[in-house]
Amino acid sequence: MRKHLLNKRNKIFGHILFWMASIVFLCFLFFIYSREFNLTSVAKSVVINAGFAVAVYLNLNILIPRFLTRKQYIYYIFWLVVLLSFSSLFVQVLIVYPLRQFLEVSERLQSLSTETHSAFFFATLFYIGITTFLKLFKDWLSLQDLNYKLAKTEKGKLEAELKSLKGQLNPHFLFNSLNNIYSLSLINSEKVPDLILRLSDLMRHIIYESKDNFISLRKEIEFVDNFIALQRIRVAENTAINYEKPNITSSSYIAPLLFEPFIDNAFKHGLPGTENDYINISFSANEDWLDFDLENNFAEPENFDSKNSGIGIANVKQRLKHLYHANEYQLDIKQEESTYSVHLRLKLKDHGN
């Protein structure tokens, strides 16, 4: 409240200072023109500035908010001309002439000539132009400050949301992996120790290596290698799992843990147990883009929980939206009869965040 009153007081003081400077400036012009300085010059300067002030404040408080800010430019120009005309007449007729004896106005000024009206018209236009520019510049500065605050708030909100999404992703992934280990431990499989080691590598990647918004593409592909190897252990030997990847030699970066939910979804909800079960996973990359393709067959079970099944994929969509511009990624997910496919195209970054 105190800050608001202080700003209002400073604003009023600024306006008073502006008009005092204007009065002094006109007095100086009158002195140069007549080579004398007296009360008449001061009175004329005050009267003329009163006319300017009427036009300026009507423009600032009525014409600009009602027409200019709403982009009604024709209406604004029309009413501005009307305002300038009436303001000029106001100075000449309503102020100068009733006080002409006191002001000792010259005969030329008393004649209401067209030349005098034009002089007041363009002088008023000059003042309106200056004050309009100052107002628009002030509004622009306020808008920039507001945009900065909004961007800062949005950035903080984004960072909090990404942290929350990663927090949801890690338990989701851990839950699925532990289920795999538990299933094998029930039959005393010799594969359990190797599975635990691979899970340890995967969790290290999630907890330590993927803490940034962008990580090395090479590390992320290594994570996918381990994840697919982990998933291979628990599926039937006759399942066709085809995995292709490029030889990563560049130092490109991508957002971490984008592929795991799709691959996990293929192993968990695909592979209905037929002789033709398959999962095709492939990566292809050039200097600027990475393409991820996945396709698998599936059969939706009767007790399928669609509400909780898409948590990981929903998180991927949100992270893509937050971390990449709209022209930096493309995600296509298709489900046709018994085939599920995913295509994700990503713009490669040249540095991490």
Score class of each variant (00 low, 15 high):
Phe31Gly: 00
Phe25Lys: 00
Ala119His: 12
Tyr76Lys: 08
Ile95Phe: 14
Ser185Phe: 08
Tyr33His: 13
Ser45Ala: 15
Ile77Gln: 05
Gly310Cys: 00
Asn59Ala: 03
Ser41Gly: 03
Phe227Asn: 08
Val96Glu: 12
Leu39Glu: 07
Ile207Trp: 04
Phe52Asn: 05
Arg2His: 14
Ser85Cys: 12
Leu84Asn: 05
Ala314Tyr: 06
Ile221Trp: 11
Ala55Tyr: 08
Gln101His: 12
Pro65Leu: 15
Pro256Met: 08
Leu344Trp: 03
Glu237His: 10
Lys138Met: 04
Leu162Ile: 15
Thr116Phe: 12
Asn180Asp: 15
Thr249Tyr: 03
Leu112Trp: 12
Asp145Tyr: 01
Ser22Asp: 00
Ala314Ile: 04
Pro171Arg: 10
Ala299Val: 00
His117Thr: 05
Phe25Glu: 00
Ala326Gln: 05
Ile311Ser: 03
Thr153Leu: 13
Glu154Gly: 03
Val235Cys: 04
Trp140Thr: 03
Trp140His: 09
Leu323Ala: 06
Leu136Ser: 12
Phe122Met: 07
Pro171Ile: 06
Pro261Val: 13
His343Ser: 14
Glu190Gln: 10
Glu107His: 12
Asp194Leu: 13
Tyr278Cys: 06
Val105Gly: 08
Lys166Tyr: 13
Val46Trp: 04
Met1Asn: 10
Leu344Met: 07
Phe78Pro: 01
Gly270Trp: 05
Phe298Lys: 06
Val316Asp: 12
Glu161Ala: 07
Gln110Thr: 11
Asn213Phe: 08
Leu290Ala: 02
Ala43Arg: 09
Asn303Ile: 00
Glu275Gly: 07
Gly14Leu: 05
Lys138Val: 07
Gly352Phe: 10
Ser341His: 02
Glu104Val: 02
Leu58Lys: 00
Asp350Ala: 00
Lys155Met: 07
Ser177Tyr: 08
Phe133Arg: 03
Asn242Val: 06
Val93Met: 12
Lys211Phe: 01
Asp145Arg: 10
Gly270His: 02
Leu320Ile: 15
Asp288Ile: 05
Asn10Glu: 04
Tyr182Glu: 11
Thr124Asp: 08
Ala160Lys: 04
Asn10Lys: 01
Leu162Gln: 15
Leu195Thr: 11
Glu302Val: 06
Pro301Val: 01
Ser106Tyr: 13
Ala123Arg: 06
Ile130Cys: 09
Leu17Met: 06
Leu103Asn: 02
Ala123Ile: 09
Asn147Phe: 00
Tyr278Gly: 05
Glu220Asn: 15
Ser41Cys: 09
Ser309Leu: 02
Asp139Trp: 05
Pro65Val: 15
Met1Thr: 11
Ser142Arg: 14
Asp277Ala: 09
Ala160Phe: 08
Ile48Arg: 01
Gly352Cys: 06
Gln92Cys: 04
Leu290Asp: 04
Ser183Val: 09
Pro261Met: 13
Asn38Ser: 07
Asp194Met: 05
Lys3Ala: 13
Glu287Ser: 11
Ala285Glu: 13
Pro193Lys: 01
Ile128Val: 15
Leu178Gly: 05
Val42Thr: 10
Ser252Lys: 12
Glu222Thr: 13
Ile187Glu: 14
Thr40Arg: 13
Ala151Tyr: 01
Phe18Lys: 10
Asp194Phe: 02
Phe175Ile: 09
Ser142Phe: 11
Glu220Leu: 09
Leu258Pro: 06
Leu217Gly: 09
Gly156Ile: 04
Glu154Ala: 13
Ser177Ala: 12
Leu344Lys: 03
Ile187Pro: 04
Glu220Gln: 15
His269Ser: 05
Ala151Phe: 02
Arg70Ile: 06
Ile74Asn: 08
Tyr75Leu: 15
